[in-house]
Design a protein around this nucleic acid. Sequence first.
DNA 1: AAAACATATCGAGACAGTCTCGACTTTTCA
DNA 2: TGAAAAGTCGAGACTGTCTCGATATGTTTT
Lengths: 181, 181
Amino acid sequence: MRADARRNYERLLAEAATAFAEHGADFSLEEIARRAGVANGTLYGHFPTRRALLEALLGDRMRALAANGADLLDHPSPFDGLAVWARTAMSHAATYRGLGTAFMQAVQDETAELHTACQAVLSVAEDLVARGRAAGAVRQDVTAPDLYALINAAAWAGEQGSAPQGERLLAFGLDGFRTPS
Amino acid sequence: MRADARRNYERLLAEAATAFAEHGADFSLEEIARRAGVANGTLYGHFPTRRALLEALLGDRMRALAANGADLLDHPSPFDGLAVWARTAMSHAATYRGLGTAFMQAVQDETAELHTACQAVLSVAEDLVARGRAAGAVRQDVTAPDLYALINAAAWAGEQGSAPQGERLLAFGLDGFRTPS
DNA sequence: AAAACATATCGAGACAGTCTCGACTTTTCA
DNA sequence: TGAAAAGTCGAGACTGTCTCGATATGTTTT
């Protein structure tokens, strides 16, 4: 990769990160290019789609999230392990406004840049849920997609209303996953 | 209201209803005007904003939903009354893709055309939740905004994934609202 | 150091959408 | 019938997405 290309690439990522954080994940790409001091064709050269840009920004963190979930399979309480991970995952999904939507779409769209990362997350969710079910702490009818949907829906609610509202929703949902005593 | 104006108004509403149902609530207004055989200025004359159009399409149903909730205050089981209403509310919010978002925003934005209708719905939610709490069927820390957020978040999840996924999320969330036994 | 090559960048332009506004047309009713 | 009121039209200003050929820049070779 040429030196100037690398420079522009980094600059674009940096501007995108702050713009998305402040204004949501559907902020104008044209404006991001402008802020990075680059023509918009250059932006599209590096990131053919908005999702490619998101993958570049979030891919590592998504993979870290999957790893973190794998670690929590050792947690003394299967239920708490799952709950802790779910809260972490939700705060990831709340990094930028609009991310929950992107994650829900990416997991279904094979061609999405984020697809692989989302699959990894879903697979960890499956492991955590399976462990909870096996331990009798989680209802038998709870599935990994349920957990994934809950996490993203709670993040979405947090974006729409207030962050605490999202957290409350997650907490109630997780309690709904519990085996009734 | 002039006869031709009324005709155009109705025609626009009809086209909007089918277009929104098929393509979601952010379908092009320009295209709706075209389908109604009217210039786009005419559409904007009748409905200054997209939300005004949504209010015209959904206002009555929202008010009916509030009335329905009031009736359910008589339900033999406070919890089931709330649950039945929540399911109805969710299927309302799933009428068009993108509606959950509109409802969440409308309840906060005083100037939104849907604001009053959403307030009415929220107020019924409050009554249903209060009754459940009083009967000991619903956790003391559950609030009307929690219920409203759950309904719309579940509708959102249904849009993103599949409708059954949305219903599952609602069911788990409602179970999370239950007083633990 | 300059030529030759590969790589990036630029920015105009095609396209779609939102929204406004002044010129024009239709309805209404006195 | 003919104003006045009411409504409609559609061009045009604006923002955004995305593409592509001309141009410029960095890198490698001689």
